[in-house]
Write a protein that binds this DNA or RNA. Structure first.
Lengths: 157, 157
DNA sequence: CGCATCCTTGAAATAATATTGCTATAGTCC
DNA sequence: GGACTATAGCAATATTATTTCAAGGATGCG
């Protein structure tokens, strides 16, 4: 698939497998997708180079590690002018407790997923940082009670 | 930290590093956290065993791979009886397009993050599967226009 | 205060894996 | 059909993972 830019069945199998287990060895991956290790590794590298694979992450158990509170925050801005948006996004990127941020349609402008050690820290962040930030008009939070499914990524059949 | 259950500074460095780069070699990881490879690997294994690390995943570029539509769906159920909840969750787990599901406080009962190739497929899923599912009372969707930040996991300083 | 115990580290050796170089083969386009 | 391109796989090498084991440091108790 190097230059052509088209993914074949083996590429998709590689992607699916790596999405499920990002630390599988190349030997095992090769076996699963039906190749010998060298061409398999070459494909993985090509997929990385081409940006189909953007990185690898360990999934950590937030609760066990003392991060017990997660909320969704829907944020409305006062001004949606280009420069204001950019500034808000920059702020969001600088807040460690905000792990994900999406521009959304509908009533709010942004949907944030925030993670913190406890309710107090979360409240502190929402009131003192988020709500108080320049250009923030409204913040509506939804507390996450439990994670029922977590398979981030894409549905590869 | 094996049996004591207490994480020291090195364990935290390991977790932070692996959250950022899940495919780093043990040699490199060891160097970063200030250990030689053998004890470093032992700690990683211990962290996995103890469930602090629950897995590794490749992050795929959804857009490049043809999954261009993501929505949040807030779902309200008619009945929140234990068995009904369980059934709904089982259904959610079986839908590939639902990648994440959270029980939430507030107006809705569940927040779903759904991923699909296009608006049509998403509409199809929402109308024919989600809204039509037994015990589903209300579905309110929010289209994701753009991903501005994506650092899933926890804020390890 | 000193000794025994427990835990963890790191050096060395070994096993496994990743990676490179090269040749062969299959598919494609004149 | 013949030349070209792309990709597979074998073989060799480099790198990494993993095991084994002896030594060092902390802790608790006599």
């Amino acid at each position: 698939m190097t230059v052509t830019g088209h993914l074949d069945a083996i590429d998709w199998r590689i992607l699916r497998t790596l999405q499920e287990n990002g630390r599988i060895t190349n030997v095992e991956l090769a076996e699963k997708v039906g190749l010998s290790p060298p061409p398999c590794l070459r494909r993985v590298r090509a997929l990385e180079e081409a940006g189909y694979i953007s990185g690898y992450r360990a999934m950590l158990n937030a609760e066990k590690l003392g991060f017990e509170v997660m909320v969704f925050a829907m944020v409305g801005l006062k001004s949606q002018a280009e420069s204001e948006l950019t500034q808000f996004i920059a702020r969001v990127k600088a807040w460690p407790m905000v792990r994900e941020c999406y521009a959304v349609s509908g009533e709010a402008d942004f949907m944030l997923k925030c993670v913190g050690p406890n309710l107090h820290a979360m409240q502190d962040f929402i009131i003192k940082d988020l709500t108080a930030a320049a250009n923030v008009d409204s913040v509506k939070t939804t507390l996450i009670l439990r994670q029922e499914k977590y398979e981030p990524g894409i549905p590869i059949t």
